[in-house]
């Protein structure tokens, strides 16, 4: 296994950059969402702080891949972000559903209107990605007992599952008012299946299917950015009231997750 250089950077440097980008978008989403609820709980600052820490650590690690201390820092930041995400998931479940009027009986309502249940797990995923990247930058060929590409493919499959679930909930809330809203449910689901296939029983067919579906997922993410901007424009006041509709309209950063997870799969496939 020889790492392949791409645009002057080694694969794990790319993964560090993707980690930073993902953490940045998730941190911004948490900031906007928690600002919308006026930071009612002090814990709502946590993802902003740990997300920022992960961004900084990942960028430093990408810039100076040979410094073991920075690798270690990225690993710690990864664990911290992952833990924050899990705690956030518990918080979102407990305060966003269980303690609301009607509680679990109204779970369908609060999945749509309570705190986005899977969003914190995005931060967990970014954290795990940071940990994997730190191991890779340290020159290790395996992580969590799995060889690198397999670990990445499984990671992509699990991360995509979370993104699909959250997109599914919110697009259902939007009543799939545009048929394009089915795209992030269908294409990434197939990519997810192909990822698991590729991880468990690699073959040329699996590889080809996974590659095509990853490129399509990447495309879905980029188109999603445009569609979410259009969705913002279809709110009352549209782009003219962008500062209001940023809080009410489709989450502007969310499609980026599909780009990030697909890109990780592509790094694992072409560069490792």
């Amino acid at each position: 296994m020889t790492p392949i250089e791409f645009l002057g950077l080694y694969p794990f440097q790319w993964l560090a950059i993707i980690t930073a980008g993902t953490a940045f978008f998730l941190m911004i989403d948490a900031l906007v969402g928690h600002y919308r609820r006026a930071f009612a709980y002090r814990m709502q600052y946590a993802p902003v702080v740990t997300g920022t820490a992960l961004v900084v650590a990942a960028l430093l690690a990408a810039g100076f891949p040979d410094l073991p201390l920075l690798n270690q820092l990225l690993s710690w930041a990864g664990w911290l972000a992952a833990a924050t995400g899990l705690v956030g998931f518990a918080y979102h479940f407990y305060y966003g559903i269980v303690t609301k009027p009607g509680g679990l009986k109204w779970i369908l309502h609060y999945l749509m209107y309570g705190a986005p249940i899977f969003a914190p797990l995005g931060l967990t995923a970014a954290g795990v990605l940071g940990i994997i990247t730190a191991h890779g930058l340290a020159g290790e060929h395996a992580v969590f007992g799995l060889v690198m590409p397999i670990a990445l493919f499984l990671f992509v499959a699990i991360a995509l599952a979370g993104a699909i679930a959250q997109a599914g909930i919110l697009h259902y809330r939007g009543a799939f008012n545009n048929p394009a809203m089915y795209a992030p449910l269908t294409v990434p689901s197939l990519a997810m299946i192909a990822g698991v296939w590729m991880a468990l029983a690699p073959s040329t067919v699996a590889r080809a299917a996974f590659a095509v579906l990853l490129w399509m997922t990447l495309l879905v993410g980029f188109i999603g950015f445009g569609m979410h901007l259009r969705g913002l424009d279809r709110e009352m006041g549209g782009l003219y009231l962008w500062h209001v509709n940023l809080l009410e309209g489709p989450p502007q950063g969310a499609p980026g997750l599909f780009i990030a997870w697909a890109a990780i799969g592509l790094v694992g496939m072409y560069l490792l």
Binding site: P101, G102, M112, Y113, Y172, A175
Partner: peptide, 28 residues
């Protein structure tokens, strides 16, 4: 329904809370 329910208002929260306590079914 062609579109999804709206978010509960504070007044609706009161209705849901009261009904839940009394065991009266309540829906969006």
């Amino acid at each position: 329904y062609p579109q999804r329910e709206h978010e509960l208002s504070a007044s609706a929260n009161v209705l849901v809370r009261g009904c839940a306590k009394l065991g009266i079914p309540v829906a969006p």
